[in-house]
């Protein structure tokens, strides 16, 4: 795969993966504000799914 293509395919999945990892570890290492950040980070992949499915259903 060419560089350009690699970037296009993996940009968002890599972002979602990084966000998920951040969420998993932040709640383990911290409390209070970190909890809040981690919930927020966790919701992003779910939100992306809902958004994409919604868009496909009601273009």
């Amino acid at each position: 795969m060419k560089d350009q293509q690699l970037k296009k395919v993996w940009r968002i999945p890599a972002f979602l993966g990084a966000v998920t990892l951040f969420r998993l570890l932040s709640a383990l290492l911290g409390a209070g504000f970190w909890y809040f950040l981690s919930w927020f980070a966790l919701i992003i992949p779910l939100f992306v799914i809902v958004f994409k499915v919604w868009r496909a259903k009601f273009p």
Binding site: P13, L16, G17, T20, L21, L24, P45, L46, V48, I49, K52, V53
Partner: peptide, 16 residues
């Protein structure tokens, strides 16, 4: 397409 989207968006969670 749904299998791919849902799978890749939750891949890290599923893996962990």
């Amino acid at each position: 397409d749904l299998h791919n989207l849902l799978g890749i968006a939750t891949a890290i969670w599923l893996f962990v």
